[in-house]
Amino acid sequence: MMDITWEEPFCGEGASCFRLGTDTEGNAYIAVAGQEEDYLTDSTEALRTLIRDIKAGKADHLLG
């Protein structure tokens, strides 16, 4: 099993809390806080881009 280092949860207004994590091989992870065993993984840059796009309002249609 991968050794994932999880950051503190990030909670939006009225939304679920998410946690971001990384491993020693350069992969990044995102999961709902409390459900870290059910995560999505991709390269760190891909998840960084996803987060930037969400913050810029480019994914509001997905947050319903």
Rank of each mutant, 00 (worst) to 15 (best):
T5I: 11
G26A: 10
L20N: 10
T41M: 15
T41L: 13
E8K: 06
R19Y: 04
G26R: 07
I30D: 06
D3S: 12
V32R: 09
T49L: 06
G64P: 14
F18Q: 11
F18K: 04
A56D: 11
L20K: 13
T5R: 09
G34D: 12
S16G: 14
Y39A: 02
G14W: 12
C11L: 07
G26H: 15
T49P: 04
A56Q: 08
D53V: 00
R48T: 06
C17Q: 13
C11W: 00
F18N: 04
A33R: 00
E45Y: 04
A31T: 12
L63I: 07
R48S: 10
E37W: 07
G26K: 08
L40S: 07
T49H: 05
G21N: 10
H61K: 14
R19N: 05
G12S: 10
E13D: 05
M1R: 07
R52L: 04
R19A: 07
L20V: 14
R52F: 05
E8P: 01
E37V: 03
T24H: 15
S43F: 03
D3A: 12
E36A: 07
G57Q: 04
D23I: 04
D23S: 07
D60H: 04
T44C: 10
S43D: 05
L40Y: 11
F18A: 11
C11E: 06
D3C: 02
G12T: 09
L62D: 12
D38R: 14
W6F: 02
S16N: 11
E25Y: 14
G21E: 10
G26Y: 13
F10E: 08
I30M: 15
D60W: 02
C17K: 04
R19K: 15
K55M: 02
F18W: 14
S16H: 06
Q35V: 05
Y39Q: 02
P9R: 00
G64K: 14
T24K: 15
D23P: 06
Y29P: 02
T5E: 11
L63P: 04
G57I: 00
E45L: 03
C11M: 03
I30E: 09
K58Q: 11
E36N: 09
R48E: 03
E7L: 04
A59V: 01
A46E: 10
D42F: 06
G64C: 12
D23C: 10
F18V: 07
A31V: 03
D53Y: 02
L40K: 13
M2E: 11
Y29Q: 05
I54T: 01
R52C: 08
M2N: 08
T24G: 14
E37H: 05
T5N: 03
S16D: 13
L62E: 14
G21V: 03
F10R: 05
I30L: 13
T41H: 08
I54Y: 03
K55S: 09
L40H: 13
K58A: 12
G57R: 01
A31E: 05
V32I: 15
T49M: 05
Y39H: 07
I51Q: 00
A15T: 10
I4C: 00
E13T: 00
L20E: 12
L47V: 12
L50C: 03
W6N: 00
H61T: 01
Y29G: 01
G21S: 09
D3K: 04
C17V: 01
H61V: 06
I54S: 02
T49Q: 08
I54F: 02
H61A: 14
T41A: 13
P9V: 02
T49A: 11
A56W: 02
I30H: 04
T44S: 05
